[in-house]
Design a protein around this nucleic acid. Structure first.
Lengths: 356, 356
DNA sequence: CTGAAAGCGCTTACAG
DNA sequence: CTGAAAGCGCTTACAG
């Protein structure tokens, strides 16, 4: 279909030189006369010569390509940060003229086979994986294969590989402390299934902070829900149905928190006044929720670049354990956090429910 | 770093065969005895043999890879659909074991050079580009190079290449008609700079519908703003400052519409009651805005798959002009559209503004 | 049915 | 300084 690109062979023929010489001239070898180097370079530019990368990479023995293993989309929410992540990865790789291959397994069962195929086929020289499980078989596989990789996120034991993560535990300590400082003592946690480490981290932070503040750890106040707005709404409804409902809720994500807000509004409760809600992520969209969502905003801008730089360094031979970066989330106060209302107001909440 | 993958050579040696024979056995050539075919297959599985794709692709003369040219992120809004699009592309390509390469130009000036490099280097056999300009030089370049490509979106003249798009003009006709049916006659349009064709299409739809309904085309009611929530807010403030403000606003995107809602709320105007607002995109997040956003929802689920299938067909030799698919957006009524209020209410709006 | 050989388009020691 | 040659790991006519 497309016209054939010019090869080294035709370029060499055009110049009356051998392909070896032309190749060395183009690749800046020292043992080429300045005159022919110039001649070769101008001819290459004129003819629009670009080395065939498949050939080049076969020859040098490196795919000069890194793979990103896309997490499977859960029907409910789209990956909010994926575009930014890919752009950052692309920037880091681009500095060295490496390529970015984006793949996803057909099913989660196939994921290990998918990775092994990818590694063995020589298409990539390193891999970026994200959203690790607590004990992620992908990480074990890659370690067994001794294949360079970095993880966006962490697992329970994460000493011996490279990762970039935001400290979810710290974030939820901060969120709970903030609510305690506002006078709250019945603070609930709406989380997601604990197979993912990030879900566990955030729950840990919640529990740590509750205890550190001398509050009782009421198991009723810990709700594990579907990781979506609907999940957040259902969990919050459960919480509000208790005899002693919480006066504040920390949610594992902004999306889940939006569901919590919906549950509150549906009962005529005012988020940030009657019940406080804090999300996690810092999505821009939280500015436009009803009311604007207070959240733990994670610094997301550099994740892609950092992961890309790390991976290249590891491929160059760095010890993966050298490359571990933990960022902190920051409290972003908008309108859904507020001081505890007086006892009377709390009673009103309970009453209102009974009426419903 | 990683242990070397087994090559065809070691597999052949292991079996006491030549590489040619082993290759043919693995690739299902007919002239191989069933016995050795079996023997080869089991040995390949045992040793975990995977053909080196760089070598294979060099040999067969196809990169078996397609490139996706990421649009540059505008600081303000993230690409909401990009993850879905990539997943869909990956599915379509995966059926044929093609790979997906994701790239972005360092700057918009470099984009043409970037494409040319990509094409000439033989890394990809086809390209997906998105968000075309009205008269997009990338498309001309790819046509000149006679290189297979598909466009997510359309340009002004789009007869002679392949594209997948949602009919923005139709969507805005639908939105305006809906508002007219609700009794509105002063309907504004908040758009974005017109270099992108989609911005023009949506404006065209607005204008077409205004005229078709026998309404005057008031240039004041067309506001071209920054493509962001802030842009939408500023534009809406301008509209509300007019002596005769609009009673309804159609916005070029959900994000812009969120800004419009913010502007209304800031003035104490109730979206959907005092002033109607309709967005475009159908973001899930619109369920949680204040109030939930009425929008023209575009069917996004199949875009990636369709674009991938089209591109593969074109690479196989199909005429690109055969592959043009126009989808329609659907009105998704939530809470920001409503009937025109009586004259008195309208006066109140004007008054309220004068007070501010 | 299998082997021997050429070729894909590069890179890179090795001669001279 | 440049050429001639081997090699990267595959595929695929061509013999036999």
């Amino acid at each position: 279909m497309s016209s054939k690109p010019v090869s080294l062979k035709v370029l060499a023929a055009h110049l009356g030189l051998t392909v070896g010489t032309v190749s060395r001239a183009l690749n800046g070898y020292a043992d080429i006369s300045p005159a022919t180097r110039k001649r070769v370079q101008t001819a290459a530019k004129e003819l629009g010569y670009r080395p065939n990368q498949n050939a080049r990479r076969l020859s040098i023995g490196s795919p000069e390509t890194v793979g990103y293993l896309m997490p499977r989309l859960n029907h409910s929410g789209s990956q909010p940060f994926i575009a930014q992540l890919l752009q950052g990865l692309g920037e880091a790789l681009g500095k060295r003229h490496w390529d970015l291959l984006v793949t996803h397994a057909d099913s989660s069962q196939d994921e290990l086979a998918h990775i092994e195929r990818l590694v063995r086929s020589g298409r990539v020289g390193g891999l970026v994986i994200s959203r690790p499980l607590k004990n992620d078989p992908r990480i074990r596989l890659l370690q067994d294969l001794k294949f360079p990789f970095v993880v966006h996120g962490r697992t329970a034991s994460c000493d011996n590989y490279a990762w970039y993560d935001v400290d979810g535990e710290d974030a939820f300590v901060t969120a709970v402390n903030h609510l305690v400082a506002l006078g709250h003592s019945r603070i609930a946690f709406v989380g997601a299934p604990l197979q993912h480490q990030f879900a566990q981290d955030r729950l840990n932070g919640y529990q740590t902070a509750i205890k550190a503040n001398g509050l009782p750890l009421d198991p009723d106040l810990i709700q594990i829900a579907e990781f979506s707005d609907d999940g957040g709404e259902m969990a919050t409804n459960l919480l509000l149905d208790f005899a002693q409902p919480p006066t504040a809720v920390v949610c594992i994500s902004d999306t889940v928190a939006l569901g919590a807000l919906a549950a509150l509004r549906a009962r005529g409760l005012r988020p940030g006044i009657d019940v406080s809600v804090i999300g996690y992520d810092g999505l821009k969209f939280g500015n436009h929720s009803n009311p604007p969502l207070t959240t733990m905003a994670q610094p997301q801008a550099h994740a892609g670049r950092r992961l890309g730089d790390m991976l290249l360094a590891i491929i160059d031979g760095d010890d993966p354990a050298m490359h571990q970066e933990l960022q902190r989330a920051q409290l972003l106060r908008r309108k859904t956090d507020g001081p505890l209302h007086c006892a009377k107001a709390q009673q009103d909440i309970s009453k209102r429910e009974e009426i419903q």
